[in-house]
Each structure stands twice: as structure tokens, then as C-alpha cells.
């Protein structure tokens, strides 16, 4: 396509693209390259300790089963959170896009994006207050229910999932909303005129046509959740050891940057592999 552009247009294009690419180079490519370099070293190249290039950090992943098990645990967490986000977010996006109109939609949209506006650490500690024994949830439930219940979700997997779902739900809602809104209402009318019920319309028209948005949202949730460490650490306590928290430990506690970097790149490779394997399947489902 660029071959068809006049030199003037090409120059303008270059001018518009350069700042973005420059920024991406400085902010992403350079630090990532540095990390890749670290991951191949025997020790941090600061201070006086001698260091040399080695693959040991990557081999460490395979020498014990601990890392692989933690990675699998993180992937399961990612799947769980993604599934929960899809189940909660997609219907919400559908109602926003197809049922509610005008000012009510704007107001509800604001509520959806609200989590983005608060500091994530504050958000997580708020959940801690809600979920702990004798916390807001337990007191609230006991005030309503006629019988006594014990609700202490703190330091458990459900607490981590709740915290993560709350943080990442807006991604699924926003991407699904955009995809759903793009579906012409007359398609739904047409399907109804041909005798299709609500479920058939959802399964054969609405879902296939909005799948790209839903998948984009799911990916936006899945990838960061697999590497997450803050929510597991604060809401998970002792059960909150995940692949992400181990990486964090390498950087801030053990000060073994090379191992942390190597583990990060293994995570990146695994996530890319998962996406590469699933994308053709999803593309076929959409066709």
C-alpha cells in the first residue's frame, strides 16, 4: 500500500509515526533488551562481583518442578479469572450496548470504568476489609440473614479471584461493548422475523459477531493475571504464592535479577505460545 503513496504523503506518515515508535523503542524495547541481557548473566552486573554469560537461569526452571508447578497454578488462576470476567462482563456489556439508551447508559458506563480511577493498592486493601473475618461482608450478611454465617474469605483463592476480577473486569466489558455496539440491530430483528428465539440469536449471531471483542478482552485479562503478584500477595497470604510473586521475590527480596528476568521471559514465551495455539481455533469458531 505504501508503494502507492506520494513522497509527500510518505513524509507526513513518517512524521506522524516517528514519535510513537521512538517512544516504544525507549520505553519498551530498550528495557526489555536489558532484561534479556540480564537473564543470560550469572550475577547482577553492578558492584564488584564477577559475572559471565550463562544459560543457567533458564536451566534452573527445568531443574526443579517448583517453577513449572507455580506457572501451572498461575495459568489456572488466569483461566479462572478470565472465565469469571467473561461470565460477568459479557452480559453486562450486552445490556449496556443493546438495552440501555441515553443518559442511563452514560451513568452506568461511568460505574464500569470507576475501578480504573482508584489506586490499585487501595482497591486491594479495600477488598481485604470486606473479605476478612468480621469484615464488611460478614457483618453485612449477618445483618440481613436470619441465621448466623461465618464468612472469612481472606487468604484464600476465592479472595484472590475476587480481587483480580474486580481489577480486570472493565477490560472485558469495554472490548465486548464496542464489539456488541457495532452489531446492527436490524440483524437481530431479521433473525427474530425468521422465527429465532433469544438463545439462537445469541448463539448464531450475537456471539460470533462479537467474539473478536470478547477474545480481545479475555486476552487483556489473562495475560496480566498470569503474571500478577500484588493481589495474590495481599489477598492470598500463605496460599498466595504464584509464579508472579516468585518473580517479584527475585527482584525485590532475593535480589537475583538474572533468575527473575529468565523466569519472566519463560512466562512471556509460554503466554505467547498459548495465544498462538488458541488463536487459529478462535478464528475458526468465528468463521
Amino acid at each position: 500500500m505504501s508503494a502507492a503513496l506520494a513522497p509527500r504523503d510518505r513524509l507526513r506518515l513518517l512524521g506522524l509515526l516517528t514519535p510513537a515508535y521512538l517512544w516504544l523503542t525507549v520505553a519498551i524495547f530498550l528495557p526489555l533488551s536489558a532484561m534479556l541481557f540480564f537473564s543470560l548473566l550469572s550475577d547482577v552486573p553492578f558492584g564488584d562481583a564477577p559475572w559471565h554469560v550463562t544459560a543457567d537461569n533458564y536451566l534452573a526452571f527445568f531443574q526443579t518442578t517448583t517453577y513449572a508447578k507455580l506457572l501451572w497454578k498461575s495459568i489456572k488462576l488466569g483461566l479462572m479469572v478470565t472465565l469469571a470476567c467473561v461470565l460477568v462482563g459479557y452480559p453486562c456489556a450486552y445490556v449496556l450496548a443493546k438495552t440501555i439508551r441515553g443518559r442511563a447508559r452514560e451513568a452506568l458506563f461511568l460505574l464500569v470504568i470507576l475501578p480504573f480511577w482508584s489506586n490499585s493498592l487501595v482497591r486491594i486493601f479495600s477488598w481485604a476489609i470486606v473479605l476478612r473475618g468480621n469484615g464488611v461482608l460478614e457483618v453485612g450478611l449477618n445483618a440481613i440473614l436470619p441465621f448466623e454465617v461465618d464468612v472469612n474469605l481472606m487468604f484464600s483463592t476465592p479472595a484472590i479471584v475476587i480481587g483480580l476480577v474486580h481489577s480486570y473486569l472493565p477490560y472485558v466489558i469495554l472490548t465486548s461493548y464496542l464489539a456488541l455496539q457495532a452489531i446492527d440491530d436490524s440483524l437481530i430483528d431479521a433473525a427474530r422475523s425468521m422465527g429465532a428465539g433469544k438463545l439462537t440469536i445469541l448463539r448464531r449471531i450475537v456471539l460470533p459477531l462479537s467474539l473478536p471483542g470478547l477474545v480481545a478482552g479475555a486476552v487483556l485479562v489473562f495475560v496480566p493475571v498470569v503474571g500478577s503478584f500484588m493481589e495474590p500477595r495481599i489477598l492470598g497470604g500463605r496460599v498466595g504464592t504464584y509464579y508472579g510473586t516468585v518473580i517479584e521475590d527475585q527482584f525485590v527480596a532475593v535480589f537475583n535479577w538474572p533468575l527473575g528476568a529468565a523466569l519472566s521471559f519463560i512466562l512471556l514465551a509460554v503466554v505467547l505460545l498459548i495465544l498462538a495455539v488458541t488463536s487459529p481455533v478462535l478464528r475458526r469458531a468465528q468463521a
Binding site: 446492527d184 436490524s186 440483524l187 431479521a190 448464531r204 449471531i205 459477531l209 468465528q286 468463521a287
Partner: peptide, 10 residues
């Protein structure tokens, strides 16, 4: 329908 409303995915 005026826009024909053909299902683009089929």
C-alpha cells in the same frame, strides 16, 4: 430490511 441485514458471519 432496508439495509438487507444479511448475517456477515454466514
Amino acid at each position: 430490511f432496508q439495509s438487507y441485514a444479511l448475517f456477515p458471519n454466514m
